Simulated scan of single mutants.
Amino acid sequence: METPDFTGMPNLEYLNLSGCASLKEVHHSLGCSRKLISLKLYRCINLERFPCLNVESLEKLCLNRCSSLEKFPEILGRLMPKLDISVGGSEIRSDWPTVLDLSYLDKLVAFPSSIGMLKSLVKLYLSGCSKFESLSEGIGDLENLEELDASYTQISQPPSSIIRLNKLKSLNGGLPEDIGCLSSLKELHLQGNNFEHLPLSIDQLGSLRYLDLSKCRRLKKFLGVNVAEGLRSLENLNLSSCNLKDGGLPEDIGYLSSLKELHLQGNNFEHLPLSIAQLGALQTLHL
């Protein structure tokens, strides 16, 4: 149920515990294994605790099918330039740790602050981690992150440090007040959230192409006055099933000059703003 104490194994390089179905905890002394090259915990389905991990020499980490894991391990040491990460539902291998997929680890609750040490991460997937409650402030140190998917988690709002992710192009789940600082954002997936208003800074997302607000049933109004003008690059807008009434759409919606697809089905308004006639690029309108 627990690994041995690794303190007396300073030269340990390869550790394969794959298929140890009864294993519940990795001993904290593994953090002292500075020469560890490969760690495989594939299908350790009852693994709950994995206190820390030294990544100074690590080239391969496999946590596939660790469906009982409650917390990602604390990261120790300086990350070397080559690391293959294999987690989540399928194997992921790369010359750099560019992808971390923890999707559907439904007992995972949180990340350590040291997650920010994975500087080369480009994609982080947490979709389906139904008990995951919050991202640590360390997320803001992932300077190369381009995609963050936290859909179907307990995260209601990402930490303030997220605005430092100036390469972020796709965000799924959670909405910071100063989201306008994410100037590279091209896709914003917010479907099924419970907020009533969008931050005013959203009009600063000049690169945004895709915005999904479907099933945000508490949303009272999409954008304020003179906000639509800042979203001139928006091509696809989904406001379906938001329970919007007359006045819920901005009168200046015609400023969305790049809009090609507009989903408005499942709402309760009786009239559309007159400026909708100015959407010259519009190809598809769902009512």
Rank of each mutant, 00 (worst) to 15 (best):
S67E: 05
K107A: 08
F222T: 00
A150N: 12
W96C: 06
L198E: 03
L41N: 00
V225W: 09
N243W: 05
K169P: 01
N267D: 06
C129V: 12
Y255G: 02
E177F: 11
S134Q: 15
T7S: 13
L264A: 01
A21R: 15
N46L: 05
L23W: 01
T153W: 04
S257R: 15
S29I: 06
P199W: 08
S183Y: 09
G140V: 10
E229M: 15
P273F: 11
I202C: 08
N54M: 03
L100G: 02
G266V: 00
L274V: 14
G8S: 14
A228H: 13
L142M: 11
L259F: 07
E59Y: 08
L223K: 09
S134C: 14
F269R: 08
D106F: 08
D212C: 12
D178G: 09
N144G: 04
R34L: 09
Y14R: 08
S113Y: 11
I139D: 04
M9R: 12
R43C: 06
E143C: 12
K221R: 15
N193K: 12
R164D: 12
L168T: 04
N268M: 04
S170R: 14
S207T: 05
D212N: 15
V99T: 10
L234G: 03
S38H: 02
G128H: 06
Y42H: 04
N268K: 02
E251M: 07
G254K: 08
A277F: 12
N194T: 11
S114E: 13
D5F: 03
L198V: 05
G254A: 10
R218M: 01
L168M: 10
N46W: 03
G19R: 09
P176H: 14
L17H: 07
D106E: 14
S67D: 02
L69T: 00
G206F: 07
W96H: 09
G247Y: 08
E196A: 06
G248E: 04
K60N: 04
I139Q: 03
E235I: 00
S103P: 09
D95H: 07
Y210K: 13
C52Y: 03
D101P: 06
G254I: 05
L135A: 13
L175V: 10
E133G: 12
F50D: 00
G280N: 13
F132I: 13
H263S: 01
L234Y: 05
A277W: 11
S68E: 02
I202D: 06
E235P: 02
A228S: 15
F269I: 09
P250W: 05
S29N: 08
L282D: 03
G140H: 11
N226R: 15
Y125C: 12
S130T: 14
L148M: 14
C181Q: 13
S151L: 10
S90L: 11
E235H: 02
L168I: 08
G19T: 08
S156W: 10
G31K: 07
Q204C: 10
S151V: 07
Y152K: 13
S33W: 00
K40R: 15
I139L: 14
S90P: 04
S113V: 12
E74I: 02
R34Q: 12
D212K: 11
L279H: 10
K245D: 07
S114H: 13
L198W: 02
P176I: 12
D203W: 06
I155Q: 14
V227D: 10
E91A: 05
